[in-house]
Nucleic acid binder design. Structure first.
Length: 292
DNA sequence: CGCCAGGATTCCT
DNA sequence: AGGAATCATGGC
Protein backbone atom coordinates (compact mmCIF):
# COMPACT_ATOMS: atom_id res chain seq x y z
CA UNK A 1 0.00 0.00 0.00
CA UNK A 2 1.23 3.49 -0.79
CA UNK A 3 2.32 5.70 2.04
CA UNK A 4 3.63 9.17 2.79
CA UNK A 5 5.72 10.20 5.75
CA UNK A 6 5.30 13.85 6.60
CA UNK A 7 8.11 16.01 7.87
CA UNK A 8 8.22 17.12 11.49
CA UNK A 9 7.49 20.68 10.44
CA UNK A 10 4.37 19.51 8.65
CA UNK A 11 1.80 18.51 11.29
CA UNK A 12 -1.25 16.56 10.24
CA UNK A 13 -4.06 14.86 12.13
CA UNK A 14 -6.22 12.58 10.06
CA UNK A 15 -8.75 12.21 12.89
CA UNK A 16 -9.21 15.95 13.37
CA UNK A 17 -9.26 16.66 9.66
CA UNK A 18 -11.92 14.08 8.88
CA UNK A 19 -13.83 14.38 12.14
CA UNK A 20 -14.19 18.12 12.65
CA UNK A 21 -17.38 18.41 10.62
CA UNK A 22 -16.13 19.85 7.35
CA UNK A 23 -16.91 16.61 5.48
CA UNK A 24 -19.78 14.26 6.18
CA UNK A 25 -19.18 10.94 4.52
CA UNK A 26 -16.05 9.49 6.07
CA UNK A 27 -16.40 6.71 8.63
CA UNK A 28 -13.85 5.33 11.02
CA UNK A 29 -13.72 1.72 12.04
CA UNK A 30 -10.76 0.61 14.04
CA UNK A 31 -7.69 2.41 12.80
CA UNK A 32 -9.05 2.91 9.30
CA UNK A 33 -11.07 5.68 7.79
CA UNK A 34 -13.18 4.82 4.73
CA UNK A 35 -14.60 7.37 2.34
CA UNK A 36 -15.52 8.13 -1.23
CA UNK A 37 -13.93 10.99 -3.13
CA UNK A 38 -15.30 11.44 -6.63
CA UNK A 39 -15.06 7.91 -8.03
CA UNK A 40 -12.46 6.65 -5.61
CA UNK A 41 -13.19 4.42 -2.65
CA UNK A 42 -10.41 5.25 -0.24
CA UNK A 43 -9.22 3.61 2.97
CA UNK A 44 -6.63 5.48 4.93
CA UNK A 45 -4.98 5.41 8.33
CA UNK A 46 -2.33 7.35 10.16
CA UNK A 47 0.58 5.92 12.11
CA UNK A 48 2.54 8.75 13.64
CA UNK A 49 3.78 10.90 10.80
CA UNK A 50 2.95 8.26 8.22
CA UNK A 51 -0.20 8.04 6.13
CA UNK A 52 -1.06 4.66 4.65
CA UNK A 53 -3.88 4.30 2.16
CA UNK A 54 -5.38 2.45 -0.73
CA UNK A 55 -7.71 3.50 -3.51
CA UNK A 56 -6.12 6.71 -4.72
CA UNK A 57 -2.93 8.27 -5.96
CA UNK A 58 -0.45 10.16 -3.86
CA UNK A 59 -1.13 13.29 -5.86
CA UNK A 60 -4.83 13.19 -5.06
CA UNK A 61 -4.25 12.39 -1.41
CA UNK A 62 -1.91 15.35 -1.06
CA UNK A 63 -4.34 17.64 -2.79
CA UNK A 64 -7.44 16.41 -0.93
CA UNK A 65 -5.96 16.65 2.55
CA UNK A 66 -4.06 19.86 1.92
CA UNK A 67 -0.80 18.17 2.82
CA UNK A 68 1.20 20.78 0.96
CA UNK A 69 -0.31 23.72 2.81
CA UNK A 70 2.31 25.52 4.85
CA UNK A 71 0.40 25.06 8.07
CA UNK A 72 3.10 26.74 10.11
CA UNK A 73 2.82 29.94 8.14
CA UNK A 74 -0.97 29.76 8.09
CA UNK A 75 -1.20 29.37 11.86
CA UNK A 76 1.34 32.08 12.41
CA UNK A 77 -0.82 34.43 10.36
CA UNK A 78 -4.01 33.79 12.36
CA UNK A 79 -2.53 33.25 15.85
CA UNK A 80 -3.38 36.70 17.11
CA UNK A 81 -4.84 36.19 20.59
CA UNK A 82 -5.18 33.65 23.42
CA UNK A 83 -8.52 32.33 22.15
CA UNK A 84 -7.42 31.28 18.69
CA UNK A 85 -4.12 30.22 20.18
CA UNK A 86 -5.87 27.78 22.49
CA UNK A 87 -7.96 26.44 19.61
CA UNK A 88 -4.92 25.94 17.39
CA UNK A 89 -2.96 24.32 20.20
CA UNK A 90 -5.71 21.79 20.87
CA UNK A 91 -6.43 20.94 17.24
CA UNK A 92 -2.88 20.52 16.03
CA UNK A 93 -2.72 19.08 12.55
CA UNK A 94 -6.24 20.01 11.49
CA UNK A 95 -6.23 20.87 7.81
CA UNK A 96 -8.85 22.15 5.41
CA UNK A 97 -9.86 19.49 2.93
CA UNK A 98 -10.12 20.30 -0.77
CA UNK A 99 -13.59 18.95 -1.50
CA UNK A 100 -15.21 18.20 -4.86
CA UNK A 101 -17.31 21.30 -5.62
CA UNK A 102 -20.66 19.75 -6.45
CA UNK A 103 -20.71 17.39 -3.49
CA UNK A 104 -19.68 20.22 -1.22
CA UNK A 105 -22.34 22.57 -2.56
CA UNK A 106 -25.11 20.00 -2.37
CA UNK A 107 -24.01 18.85 1.07
CA UNK A 108 -24.07 22.31 2.60
CA UNK A 109 -27.47 23.02 1.10
CA UNK A 110 -28.64 19.94 2.97
CA UNK A 111 -26.74 20.98 6.09
CA UNK A 112 -28.69 24.15 6.76
CA UNK A 113 -30.16 24.25 10.25
CA UNK A 114 -29.37 20.61 11.00
CA UNK A 115 -26.89 18.95 13.31
CA UNK A 116 -23.96 16.94 12.11
CA UNK A 117 -25.32 13.42 12.73
CA UNK A 118 -28.49 14.45 10.92
CA UNK A 119 -26.51 15.88 8.02
CA UNK A 120 -24.51 12.68 7.71
CA UNK A 121 -27.72 10.72 7.59
CA UNK A 122 -29.29 12.88 4.88
CA UNK A 123 -26.21 12.69 2.69
CA UNK A 124 -25.89 8.95 3.15
CA UNK A 125 -29.51 8.58 2.03
CA UNK A 126 -28.90 10.69 -1.06
CA UNK A 127 -25.89 8.58 -2.02
CA UNK A 128 -27.63 5.28 -1.34
CA UNK A 129 -30.64 6.35 -3.38
CA UNK A 130 -29.05 8.12 -6.34
CA UNK A 131 -25.35 7.33 -6.36
CA UNK A 132 -23.47 4.52 -8.09
CA UNK A 133 -22.58 1.71 -5.80
CA UNK A 134 -18.88 0.94 -5.60
CA UNK A 135 -18.94 -2.40 -3.93
CA UNK A 136 -15.39 -3.50 -3.58
CA UNK A 137 -15.99 -4.20 0.07
CA UNK A 138 -18.84 -5.84 1.86
CA UNK A 139 -18.51 -4.56 5.44
CA UNK A 140 -20.59 -1.58 4.52
CA UNK A 141 -21.61 -0.73 1.01
CA UNK A 142 -20.79 2.72 -0.26
CA UNK A 143 -21.90 4.75 -3.22
CA UNK A 144 -20.62 7.79 -5.03
CA UNK A 145 -22.22 11.15 -4.49
CA UNK A 146 -24.72 11.54 -7.35
CA UNK A 147 -23.91 14.09 -10.04
CA UNK A 148 -26.02 17.18 -10.52
CA UNK A 149 -27.33 15.66 -13.75
CA UNK A 150 -28.56 12.56 -11.98
CA UNK A 151 -30.30 14.56 -9.28
CA UNK A 152 -31.75 16.99 -11.81
CA UNK A 153 -33.29 14.18 -13.83
CA UNK A 154 -34.33 11.92 -10.97
CA UNK A 155 -37.78 11.54 -12.35
CA UNK A 156 -40.06 13.17 -9.83
CA UNK A 157 -37.35 15.41 -8.53
CA UNK A 158 -39.22 15.75 -5.29
CA UNK A 159 -38.48 12.08 -4.65
CA UNK A 160 -35.52 13.70 -2.98
CA UNK A 161 -37.28 13.12 0.27
CA UNK A 162 -34.13 11.80 1.81
CA UNK A 163 -35.45 13.44 4.96
CA UNK A 164 -34.38 16.74 3.49
CA UNK A 165 -37.56 18.50 4.51
CA UNK A 166 -37.92 21.97 3.07
CA UNK A 167 -34.41 21.74 1.63
CA UNK A 168 -35.49 19.20 -1.02
CA UNK A 169 -36.81 21.75 -3.53
CA UNK A 170 -33.69 23.87 -3.01
CA UNK A 171 -31.40 20.98 -3.84
CA UNK A 172 -33.56 20.03 -6.79
CA UNK A 173 -33.57 23.53 -8.25
CA UNK A 174 -29.84 23.96 -7.74
CA UNK A 175 -29.11 20.57 -9.29
CA UNK A 176 -30.95 21.71 -12.42
CA UNK A 177 -29.07 25.00 -12.49
CA UNK A 178 -25.72 23.27 -12.13
CA UNK A 179 -26.58 20.54 -14.63
CA UNK A 180 -27.35 23.24 -17.19
CA UNK A 181 -24.17 25.16 -16.39
CA UNK A 182 -21.20 22.84 -16.89
CA UNK A 183 -18.71 25.71 -16.78
CA UNK A 184 -19.64 26.80 -13.27
CA UNK A 185 -16.56 25.40 -11.55
CA UNK A 186 -14.04 27.08 -13.79
CA UNK A 187 -16.00 30.31 -13.69
CA UNK A 188 -16.10 30.49 -9.92
CA UNK A 189 -12.47 29.45 -9.63
CA UNK A 190 -11.54 32.45 -11.74
CA UNK A 191 -13.50 34.95 -9.64
CA UNK A 192 -12.26 36.58 -6.49
CA UNK A 193 -13.91 35.81 -3.16
CA UNK A 194 -16.52 38.51 -3.29
CA UNK A 195 -17.62 37.95 -6.88
CA UNK A 196 -17.61 34.19 -6.47
CA UNK A 197 -19.81 34.57 -3.41
CA UNK A 198 -22.37 36.64 -5.27
CA UNK A 199 -22.36 34.08 -8.07
CA UNK A 200 -23.04 31.17 -5.73
CA UNK A 201 -25.75 33.02 -3.88
CA UNK A 202 -27.92 33.14 -6.97
CA UNK A 203 -28.56 29.45 -6.42
CA UNK A 204 -31.62 28.24 -4.53
CA UNK A 205 -30.79 27.32 -0.96
CA UNK A 206 -27.45 29.10 -1.04
CA UNK A 207 -27.24 32.03 1.34
CA UNK A 208 -24.11 33.64 2.75
CA UNK A 209 -23.25 30.78 5.10
CA UNK A 210 -23.52 28.03 2.51
CA UNK A 211 -21.65 30.15 -0.02
CA UNK A 212 -18.83 30.77 2.44
CA UNK A 213 -18.56 27.06 3.24
CA UNK A 214 -18.40 26.12 -0.43
CA UNK A 215 -15.84 28.81 -1.19
CA UNK A 216 -13.69 27.72 1.73
CA UNK A 217 -13.97 23.95 1.45
CA UNK A 218 -14.22 23.45 -2.30
CA UNK A 219 -12.76 26.54 -3.95
CA UNK A 220 -9.95 27.20 -1.51
CA UNK A 221 -10.93 30.82 -0.94
CA UNK A 222 -9.28 30.80 2.45
CA UNK A 223 -10.43 34.25 3.46
CA UNK A 224 -14.03 32.99 3.64
CA UNK A 225 -15.25 32.98 7.25
CA UNK A 226 -18.46 30.95 7.61
CA UNK A 227 -20.53 31.88 10.66
CA UNK A 228 -22.85 29.20 11.97
CA UNK A 229 -24.56 29.39 15.35
CA UNK A 230 -21.44 28.08 17.12
CA UNK A 231 -19.07 30.53 15.52
CA UNK A 232 -21.58 33.29 16.25
CA UNK A 233 -21.50 32.38 19.94
CA UNK A 234 -17.71 32.37 19.93
CA UNK A 235 -17.66 35.75 18.20
CA UNK A 236 -20.03 37.16 20.82
CA UNK A 237 -18.23 35.67 23.79
CA UNK A 238 -14.65 36.45 22.75
CA UNK A 239 -14.56 38.80 19.84
CA UNK A 240 -16.84 41.62 20.87
CA UNK A 241 -19.68 40.83 18.50
CA UNK A 242 -22.92 42.47 19.58
CA UNK A 243 -26.05 40.55 20.45
CA UNK A 244 -27.82 41.74 17.34
CA UNK A 245 -24.88 41.58 15.00
CA UNK A 246 -25.82 39.91 11.75
CA UNK A 247 -24.08 37.41 9.51
CA UNK A 248 -22.33 39.86 7.23
CA UNK A 249 -20.88 41.88 10.08
CA UNK A 250 -19.49 38.86 11.91
CA UNK A 251 -18.14 37.26 8.77
CA UNK A 252 -16.46 40.47 7.67
CA UNK A 253 -15.04 40.97 11.15
CA UNK A 254 -13.54 37.48 11.00
CA UNK A 255 -12.00 38.12 7.60
CA UNK A 256 -10.56 41.47 8.56
CA UNK A 257 -9.25 40.31 11.92
CA UNK A 258 -7.72 36.97 10.93
CA UNK A 259 -6.64 37.93 7.43
CA UNK A 260 -6.21 35.92 4.23
CA UNK A 261 -6.45 32.57 6.03
CA UNK A 262 -9.43 33.53 8.20
CA UNK A 263 -11.19 30.36 7.07
CA UNK A 264 -8.49 28.29 8.70
CA UNK A 265 -8.97 30.22 11.93
CA UNK A 266 -12.69 29.64 11.68
CA UNK A 267 -12.21 25.90 11.36
CA UNK A 268 -9.97 25.75 14.41
CA UNK A 269 -12.52 27.71 16.41
CA UNK A 270 -15.27 25.43 15.17
CA UNK A 271 -13.27 22.35 15.98
CA UNK A 272 -12.79 23.63 19.55
CA UNK A 273 -16.30 25.06 19.93
CA UNK A 274 -17.24 22.82 22.82
CA UNK A 275 -14.18 23.70 24.86
CA UNK A 276 -14.36 27.39 24.00
CA UNK A 277 -18.02 27.64 24.96
CA UNK A 278 -17.77 25.58 28.14
CA UNK A 279 -17.80 27.17 31.56
CA UNK A 280 -14.07 26.54 31.90
CA UNK A 281 -12.54 27.09 28.49
CA UNK A 282 -9.00 27.69 29.69
CA UNK A 283 -8.89 31.32 28.60
CA UNK A 284 -10.03 34.38 30.48
CA UNK A 285 -13.30 35.56 29.08
CA UNK A 286 -12.59 39.05 27.77
CA UNK A 287 -8.93 38.14 27.61
CA UNK A 288 -8.32 40.85 25.08
CA UNK A 289 -10.15 43.50 23.15
CA UNK A 290 -10.72 43.11 19.46
CA UNK A 291 -9.15 45.99 17.63
CA UNK A 292 -11.60 47.69 15.36
C1' DC B 1 -41.43 15.40 25.67
C1' DG B 2 -39.16 20.25 24.24
C1' DC B 3 -35.40 22.42 22.44
C1' DC B 4 -31.84 22.73 19.21
C1' DA B 5 -29.19 22.35 14.75
C1' DG B 6 -22.54 24.21 9.60
C1' DG B 7 -29.83 28.91 7.64
C1' DA B 8 -32.47 30.36 3.59
C1' DT B 9 -36.52 32.24 1.68
C1' DT B 10 -40.39 35.03 1.67
C1' DC B 11 -42.84 38.75 3.13
C1' DC B 12 -43.05 42.82 5.61
C1' DT B 13 -41.97 47.71 6.91
C1' DA C 1 -31.45 47.66 4.15
C1' DG C 2 -33.10 45.51 8.07
C1' DG C 3 -36.44 42.75 10.55
C1' DA C 4 -39.94 38.61 11.74
C1' DA C 5 -42.32 34.34 10.32
C1' DT C 6 -41.93 30.10 8.38
C1' DC C 7 -39.98 26.04 6.81
C1' DA C 8 -39.30 19.76 7.95
C1' DT C 9 -36.70 16.62 10.25
C1' DG C 10 -33.84 14.15 13.43
C1' DG C 11 -30.60 14.29 17.71
C1' DC C 12 -30.28 14.57 22.21
Amino acid sequence: MPRITLGKHRPFSLDLTLGCGQVFRWQKSGEWWTGVVEKDLIRIRQKGRTLIWEGSTQERIRDYFGLDHDLGRIIESVDRDPVIHLAVANSTGLRLIHQPPWECLASYICATYANIPGIRRKIALICDTFGDEISSREDFRLSTFPSADVLAESAPCDLLRCSLGYRAPYLCATAKEIAADPGWIRRIEALDYSAARRDLMRLMGVGPKVADCVLLFAFRKYEAFPVDVWIARIMRRYYGAGEKEGYEQMSRKGREYFGPCAGYAQEYLYSERERLLSSDPGVQVPSFQLAR
